[in-house]
Amino acid sequence: MSVLKVNIVSSSEEIYSGEATMVFATGSLGELGIAPGHTPLLTGLAPGPVRVQNGQEEETFFCSGGFIEVQPSEVTILSDTAERADSLDEAEAIKAQEAAEKLLHDKENNVDFVKAAAQLAEAAARIKTIQKLRKNK
C-alpha cells in the first residue's frame, strides 16, 4: 500500500516528519481527508487538530492555522506558531510603532542629558580651577 510522506513544520521547529496512510485536517474551506495519490492542492489551514493515520496508529497535532500543500505522495503543513487574529497583529504593530516613537522621544531627552552632563563637567572643572588658584595664593 502506498503511503504519504508527511511533514508538519512551523517556523521555529519541525513538529512531525514521517509516513502516513491518511491525513485529516481542517482546511480554510472545509474538512480535508488526504489519501495517497491526491491531486496537488494548496489551501489555507484553519486552527484545529491535524490527524495523521498510519495503519492502525494515529497521532493528533494541534495546528493554529497556516497552509497545507498536497502532492500525490507528500503532504506538507506549514503551521503558524501562534493563533493569528488580524486584530491582534494590529495591536502588536501599534505597540512596536509606539516603542519606536518612544525611542525618538527618548533621544531628545538623551541629547538634553548629554548637554547637561557636559555643562556639569564644565562647571566642576571651573570650580576645581578656582580652588587650585586659591590654594596657590
Binding site: 521555529s12 506558531t81 501562534a82 512596536a96 525611542l103
Partner: peptide
C-alpha cells in the same frame, strides 16, 4: 519599529509586529 529583549530563544511571534509595520 523596534523589537528587543528576545533572549536566547527568540519567539517568532515577537517579530510579527515589526514585520507587519
Amino acid at each position: 519599529a523596534s523589537a528587543d529583549n528576545l533572549g536566547d530563544r527568540p519567539n517568532p511571534e515577537d517579530l510579527l509586529a515589526l514585520t507587519k509595520v
